[in-house]
Nucleic acid binder design. Structure first.
Length: 631
DNA sequence: CACCCAGAAT
């Protein structure tokens, strides 16, 4: 790295203050206005030729215009060529090209060029500084950023607002929050924009409390500021809080825009808050929100993740502009709901429209195949991906294939598939195969996979639970207990089962055997009543899976056998009108016993019940589930 | 005679 040498006197500072040569100023103005009329790069090139013929090639004003224009038209290569023909480029020209590099995504080239300028003893001004800081920010290049900061101090540019802003942004992005905060506090204005940058930086590094306190101190919060807070809360998993802030924003009469809506829809998607999502959708007209492809995608995603796949398809049909990501959203949505054939048809429609699938598209397609056990089609798609679209399979794609083979019971094939892969298997893939071993009762393979996961330290709570269940389902109780002990020794916490249900615009959360809800008495009464009726009339007999807990008393055991989705459904039954569809979101996979029980509950209560589990959707109606008991 | 789209988005 070069060091900045400040040359204030002498002739090394180039002609920014020198007077232009006589009588060329009208020619210059002419050339510039010619340039400004150019619409495409070939037009620019012919104008450039004219400029060269007129002997104006070295004129810094004209070249400046030329460089900016090339950058704007996405022709950084041409800009670079133009620049390198200049004998003595000044700070303006350097800055224009640095900006061009930043615009084209070649941030590192931008930083390098800036250092070349310094080496040429050209003194940067605040524009050059902000440009290079922008490049550093994109690259998360903290080291050169700090050097530039040092130069800022030497040059006395500290008081410049844009410079401070960019420094703060850089530090914030790089996680140097104390430095970012220092810059922020040095800005006496503490205006909305600076505060927004600070808030976003805090939230990006999970300092929710700090973000909140900056946010609270902003006097007049605008749309972007509110949106940054909502978005950050969503990214930190604070969905309910995010929605609360959104409501506050409306109380304060700040109009949401497209970005706000996208963030709010994302929160709804996570929570399964369909009613709120619908409300947001219906108010989009009033707020003049345009249905661009980002908003459209978020809407489709929301409806699909909240269980209303019909509405998701309808929004898709209504959209005017669809791009690859729109198709990716709808394909994975259809797959998630077990509509595998429709997903494949959508994929074909996309191709027909002339869009080129990317690697995300194929994750959706292969996942769709897996949810219906479409092995042949899955392989066809997998090979087509490599052969026709030249997409190198990633670990996700292999994972889908392993899942597909595993679920249908072709366990050995799945295992040899893993061994043939170019990449190392990840714990998600092995977990999928392990779960398949449990479903199909393959003890040896299951044991082998689980052990390899445990040995390489990749095991999470799910691995232990699955392995223990593999043993238990073949009657090997001793081994099951041993795994349970190992889990306890390793201090591994089981991820608690949790279900959400939306009733009257409010999200109600239930944990395994939960007793916190204000209506707990009625909920448990309903549950007991249902169990009794199902046993008597529908021949239901509970097959509770082995509980992985040290249970001292029977009361606790009973509570722990009550999976959270049952509580959520019972609450839904007692708090909504007859025939209302119930929609439940669960964080883990639904177990066999709950699955068969919910089928019967749907039958006797004459309700549709939609359950989203960790992997997919189940639509229960009249005693059957849309997954066809294959999941 | 030139210059930093202030910040947020599946």
């Amino acid at each position: 790295m070069y060091c900045l040498t400040l040359v204030v006197q002498g002739n090394s500072i180039l002609p920014r203050n020198s007077k232009p040569k006589s009588n060329n100023s009208s020619h210059r103005r002419e050339a510039i206005s010619l340039l400004q009329k150019c619409k495409n790069i070939s037009h620019v090139q012919s104008t450039h030729a004219k400029i060269i013929r007129n002997g104006q090639e070295q004129d810094p004003f004209i070249v400046f215009e030329l460089l900016r224009l090339c950058s704007k038209l996405n022709s950084i290569d041409y800009a670079s060529k133009v620049f390198h023909r200049i004998r003595t480029p000044n700070v303006f020209l350097y800055t224009a090209l640095v900006d061009g590099f930043v615009l084209s995504g070649s941030h590192f080239d931008g930083i390098r060029l800036y250092y070349r300028m310094i080496a040429d003893s050209i003194v940067p001004d605040n524009y050059a500084i902000t440009s290079v800081l922008k490049a550093c920010g994109f690259q998360l290049a903290l080291k050169p950023g700090r050097e530039v900061h040092g130069q800022v101090i030497k040059l006395g540019l500290c008081s410049n607002r844009s410079v401070k802003m960019k420094l703060m942004e850089l530090y914030g992005k790089c996680g140097e929050l104390e430095d970012a905060r220092r810059m922020f506090d040095e800005m006496p204005e503490h205006d909305v924009v600076a505060s927004t940058v600070m808030i976003a930086s805090y939230l990006h590094h999970r300092f929710v409390g700090e973000a909140r306190s900056v946010f609270d101190r902003v006097q007049t919060k605008d749309t972007v500021c509110w949106t940054a807070m909502i978005d950050g809360l969503v990214k930190n998993g604070e969905m309910n809080w995010a929605l609360e802030v959104f409501r506050e924003m409306q109380v304060e009469n700040v109009k949401p825009n497209e970005a706000t809506i996208v963030c709010v829809l994302s929160a709804c998607s996570h929570l399964g808050a369909l009613e709120l999502g619908r409300w947001v959708h219906s108010y989009m007209g009033k707020y003049e929100i345009k249905l661009n492809h980002i908003v459209g995608g978020a809407l489709i995603h929301m409806y699909a993740r909240c269980g209303d796949i019909d509405k998701a398809e309808k929004v898709f049909d209504e959209m005017m502009e669809r791009d690859i990501s729109t198709y990716n959203v709808i394909i994975s949505a259809l797959g998630m709901h077990g509509k595998s054939i429709e997903a494949i048809e959508m994929f074909r429609a996309m191709i027909k429209q002339g869009l080129r699938p990317n690697s995300i598209t194929f994750v959706g397609v292969l996942n769709a195949c897996s949810h219906r056990g479409l092995v042949e089609l899955g392989f066809e798609m997998f090979h087509s991906m490599v052969r026709d679209y030249n997409i190198e399979p990633q670990v996700e794609h292999y994972g889908c294939m392993v899942d597909l083979l595993g679920r249908v019971g072709r366990l050995e094939e799945a295992f040899s598939f893993i061994k043939r892969m170019k990449t190392a298997p990840d714990h998600i893939m092995l977990g999928a195969l392990l779960s398949a071993c449990k479903i199909h009762g393959n003890l040896e393979l299951g044991e082998q996979i689980a052990r390899s996961l445990l040995d390489c330290g990749k095991a999470d709570s799910g691995t232990y639970v699955l392995l223990s269940n593999v043993y238990a389902s073949s009657g090997r109780w001793k081994e099951a207990a041993k795994v349970r002990a190992e889990m306890k020794e390793g201090g591994i916490q089981k991820e608690p089962g949790c279900s959400l249900i939306e009733v009257n615009n409010e999200i109600h959360e239930f944990l395994l055997g939960d007793i916190r809800h204000p209506h707990k008495e009625e909920i448990y009464k309903k549950l007991k009543e249902l169990e009794k009726r199902l046993k008597l009339k529908e021949g239901y007999s509970p097959k509770t899976e082995v509980a992985l807990h040290d249970v001292e008393d029977r009361q606790k055991e009973w509570a722990l056998s009550i999976h959270s989705e049952r509580l959520a459904i019972c609450y839904g039954l007692i708090s909504t009108k007859p025939y209302t569809t119930l929609r439940v979101v669960k964080n883990l996979r639904v177990c066999n016993d709950c699955h068969s029980m919910i089928k019967l509950i749907a039958k006797i209560s004459k309700r549709k019940i939609v359950v989203r589990d960790r992997n997919r959707f189940h639509h229960f109606e009249n005693g059957v589930c849309s997954c066809g008991d294959y999941w």
